[in-house]
């Protein structure tokens, strides 16, 4: 059974979602690998416009009817312009692949692989900054704008992705891959659709972190409410609180912070403690978010109900 979105046309269908659209032109780096091949097919099945692939040395082949090139520059010349690259190369080759995509002029890179060295991530971040590009990940399942396009591996089969995620007013941002899908699925079950669902990635340093995604949702016409799945460690959630406090984010935010039960290990680095202070702990995040008016729920299961109440209080439909 193929589910057909009820309101794919009209206002929602035409507005550009925060990062991707059905018309966005997508490149897959590492397209001939195990994951690259499978995910290219699934992305296409869902409706993503995959126009080219790159695997050095395999130029001239075709994968899922997508032409393969030896470099991003060549792909751009033959099939460009390119808006987005989804990277599926082995972790130790990620830095080179991402820098290549950014240098060629691609403005959004989705880095799926896990185990990318952190200094490589910092180099990518610095170069992206210089070139005015952004990236999601590493260690991300990707993102999906329901009814439009999926990048990465989130949702798996197109059929599942269509069943789990529906278009609607809630922007979802999450640091846990599996929970990104779980939260969105529970919202869908409760009749509440999603504008865009982003797994920001599980690593300590990621390209677009919660604050960047939340700020994008603030600018997004379709998004009326933001759901955030946070976790202990890093300062992402505290920085979202800063955005709200400064008035940069005014849309309502519902948050869950995982890791309450995790025993806080003795911190090994004094420098880390000096720089971060108590930020990063479960209590710190919950306190900061509550202080600026975020609804922090104790259980994932409470999210749909709280979201429904907030949407009702704002008036209007949930889809």
């Amino acid at each position: 059974m193929v589910w057909i979105p009820r309101r794919i046309s009209g206002r929602i269908g035409k507005a550009m979602s925060i990062l991707v659209d059905a018309a966005s032109r997508v490149l897959v780096q590492g397209i001939t690998g195990r994951e690259g091949m499978v995910r290219t097919q699934l992305m296409k099945d869902y409706g993503t416009t995959v126009v080219a692939g790159v695997t050095p040395g395999k130029g001239g082949q075709n994968v899922c009817d997508v032409p393969v090139y030896d470099s991003v520059e060549e792909a751009w010349q033959a099939s460009g312009p390119l808006d987005i690259s989804v990277v599926f190369v082995p972790a130790m080759l990620v830095k080179n692949a991402a820098l290549e995509a950014i240098a060629a002029g691609i403005k959004l890179v989705v880095i799926v692989p896990d185990r990318v060295p952190i200094l490589d991530v910092l180099e990518i971040a610095r170069f992206a900054d210089i070139k005015g590009a952004r990236f999601v990940g590493p260690n991300t399942l990707g993102l999906v704008s329901p009814g439009k396009a999926v990048l990465g591996m989130i949702g798996g089969r197109a059929e599942s992705a269509r069943e789990w995620f529906r278009p609607g007013p809630v922007g979802v941002t999450s640091r846990s891959g599996g929970m990104t899908s779980a939260i969105s699925y529970y919202l869908t079950e409760a009749g509440i659709g999603q504008s865009t669902i982003v797994h920001v990635g599980g690593d300590a340093v990621v390209g677009m972190s919660h604050p960047e995604v939340v700020a994008s949702f603030q600018e997004d016409e379709q998004t009326r409410l933001i759901v955030m799945f946070g976790e202990i460690g890093t300062t992402q959630e505290e920085r979202v609180a800063d955005l709200i406090e400064n008035g940069n984010v005014t849309k309502p935010v519902v948050a869950y912070i995982g890791g309450k039960a995790a025993k806080s290990g003795t911190r090994f680095s004094h420098a880390g403690a000096i720089v971060e202070g108590t930020r990063g702990s479960h209590a710190s995040k919950v306190e900061r978010l509550q202080a600026v008016g975020v609804q922090v729920v104790d259980s994932i299961a409470d999210i749909p109900q709280v979201a429904a109440q907030l949407l009702d209080s704002m008036g209007g439909k949930n889809e």
């Binding site: 910092l122 971040a125 610095r126 300590a204 300062t235 680095s269 004094h270 420098a271 000096i274």
Partner: peptide, 25 residues
């Protein structure tokens, strides 16, 4: 002297203190 990674600025952060030893925090 210490070096940490700043997740917000996405860069290495060099920290120096003119006093050291135990009790640095």
């Amino acid at each position: 002297a210490g070096l940490v990674i700043d997740d917000a600025q996405k860069c290495p952060l060099l920290v120096f203190s003119s006093v050291g030893g135990t009790g640095i925090e």
